[in-house]
Amino acid sequence: MKKFLENKFAMIGTVIALLKQNVALWTSSTVFKVAVTDLESVKADIDNVRNGAEQKTNGSTTTKGAHREELENKVYEVISVVYAMATRTGNKNLQADMKHSLSDLQGMRDGRLVALSAHVISIIRENATALKDYSVTEESATMLDSLCSSFSSRLSTPRVVVSERKAANESLDDLFGKADDILQNVIDKLMVPYKTSKPDFYSAYKSARKIVNYGTRHEKEETKKEEEVEK
């Protein structure tokens, strides 16, 4: 969720907390009670959408990373053995073809890693007889193929997550719009009489309604204030 919306969400929570602390002052008003209940409901919906979007994004990244690491390790394991076989048999072309370090694999783009994996699978099957003595068999090719397929299936997931995140952002915009409507057009208006009858409550409410930018640092301003105090 965008930083501004996070700050706005915090403001909504602060307002609800303040109103709950002073429930005795407005509980006799049915309209006020409905408005607060509606605001709490919208806040809960925002929280659900926000948490759901974050979990999907983080989960997708973690899953893809785990599958990629597993594929990298298996490819490196196989090409190392194939390289040894190529060296022993004097196959310079195959030797050069299999000359990849683990860091090389880790630095490859996803598509390149998938292509190399498919190529290695072909190499295993083309050199099945020679590789049998090196314990690289059809089972090795099948396992590598399975890992490659699992990783490939995750490559489209980020695009799906982006689409879902876009939908979540649109949903958040709607929900924050509802919250604004409740606050600006109902609760703010219902609070006006308290300006004279309960000025402390009204003042606290106005303070709670301010959106604080928690992501901004004001080091220069703070330093300036400190200097002024010292003078």
Rank of each mutant, 00 (worst) to 15 (best):
S122F: 01
I187K: 08
T196H: 12
L155P: 07
L94S: 03
A204R: 12
Y214W: 06
L113H: 00
K210S: 11
T129E: 12
H218R: 13
T37D: 11
T89N: 12
Y205I: 10
A44Y: 10
T57D: 10
A17Q: 15
V192Y: 02
M191R: 10
S117C: 08
K132P: 01
E164H: 09
M11H: 06
K206M: 14
K8D: 14
E222K: 12
D180M: 03
A53M: 13
R159W: 03
D104H: 08
S29Y: 02
R50Y: 08
N127W: 00
D145M: 03
R165L: 03
R109G: 14
E221G: 03
T157G: 02
G177T: 06
S152Q: 11
K33T: 10
K33V: 06
Q21C: 07
S156T: 11
I79F: 06
G107M: 07
I123G: 02
D145F: 02
V161H: 05
E228C: 00
S140Q: 04
K8Y: 14
K99W: 08
S163C: 05
R112L: 07
Y134F: 12
G52C: 09
Q55S: 13
T196R: 14
E54T: 13
E126C: 01
A96F: 02
D145C: 00
K132W: 00
V49G: 02
A17H: 11
A128G: 06
A44H: 12
K43M: 09
K225R: 15
A168F: 07
E139Y: 04
A10W: 00
S29G: 02
E70D: 09
L39Q: 05
V23D: 12
L116K: 08
E6K: 15
T137L: 02
M191C: 10
G111N: 11
S117R: 03
N22P: 01
A128Q: 09
A17K: 15
E219S: 10
M11K: 14
R88S: 15
T196G: 05
S153W: 00
I79L: 10
V23N: 10
L183H: 02
T223N: 14
D104W: 03
E40Y: 00
S207K: 13
H119K: 14
S41L: 04
S171H: 10
H67C: 05
M191H: 07
T142L: 03
Q55E: 15
T142V: 05
S101R: 13
E70Y: 04
A96D: 11
Q95K: 15
N7E: 13
M85C: 12
Q95H: 08
E69L: 08
S207E: 13
T196D: 14
D188Q: 06
K189P: 00
A167G: 03
S140N: 08
Y214G: 10
R217S: 08
A208T: 09
T216W: 04
H67A: 10
T137R: 06
F151N: 02
V42Q: 01
D133E: 12
Y202I: 11
D200V: 14
A17R: 14
E228P: 00
S153V: 04
K2T: 11
L172H: 05
L18D: 06
D133R: 08
E219R: 06
Q55W: 02
S150T: 08
